[in-house]
Design a protein around this nucleic acid. Structure first.
Lengths: 138, 138
DNA sequence: CCTACACATACGTCAATACGAATATAATTC
DNA sequence: GAATTATATTCGTATTGACGTATGTGTAGG
């Protein structure tokens, strides 16, 4: 059993204080994405991606869902309304950043033309999250 | 090279990822306050306060003004509109936190009844900042 | 000048973090 | 059940950050 810690403000901001983690959050946006996409799009070593995702999870910013071999990550809003607003604001800010736009463009490309991304063959496509049912799933 | 670096997003969030620094920002709010108040209200060693203030300054979140022996600190809005919004949001969030409210209450008390705070004898009172430079939230 | 005051910085130490490389775990496939 | 795939964790190391303590710097007043 993974001991779930209480939400921590310091931890929350620290989680946002790293460019790789911001890039990961930017890619997630309102989708649920599996790890192989992060590795491919950011072009970084898999353990590095995995560690940063673990950090985001420990900070209560993302959650996971296992789907066979694949692990899907999605953003979850923190239990504090203030943190939620800041996270939303941050995501909006990232959308205006050129480098972040480029990351998302690459992700779209990978989803539309998977033939050009050999490493993603067979990987499940990102799944849009219905913003009205953030918590529950059928 | 100049000591002043370009605004850095990672640095910005890292600066917010420490409770002492959040307390300092909370006390500043829309006032310009000298260091001795921080030391007195937070009841922490002066070098510790000074180091955290230096960190905030290096992150481009606060600015200083020397007034004789006293150094006044104030919040300055970052050059990025996104960062500004997040900083405002954060300050608003802090206002709802009990511990942060207690800090501000202590500050008010120190300003109204300075006789009870021996260490602050002769210290200049906090100076409200013209809200035209900082978008207000009433 | 010299001292006192307000604040900043340097130093040593310890914890937290980031990284590449290697290895472990979990689920699928054969 | 052995190999493969996808992801997580461990290990060793280098960097950064936080802290207490000591010391340095700038200013005002005698």
């Amino acid at each position: 059993m993974a001991a779930k810690r209480a939400f921590n403000i310091e931890r929350f901001f620290q989680a946002l204080g790293d460019n790789t983690r911001l890039r990961l959050l930017n890619l997630m946006g309102d989708q649920e994405i599996c790890v192989c996409y992060f590795v491919e799009i950011l072009d970084q070593p898999q353990p590095k991606i995995s560690r940063h995702l673990a950090y985001l999870r420990s900070a209560g910013i993302v959650a996971t869902r296992r789907d066979g071999k694949w692990m899907h990550y999605r953003i979850v809003m923190p239990p504090h309304i203030g943190a939620t607003q800041i996270l939303q604001q941050t995501l909006g800010w990232l959308k205006e950043d050129r480098a972040m736009q480029a990351d998302r463009a690459r992700l779209s490309k990978a989803c539309c033309t998977p033939a050009k991304f050999v490493a993603l063959q067979g990987a499940p496509l990102p799944i849009p999250i219905d913003s009205s049912t953030v918590s529950a799933s059928r």
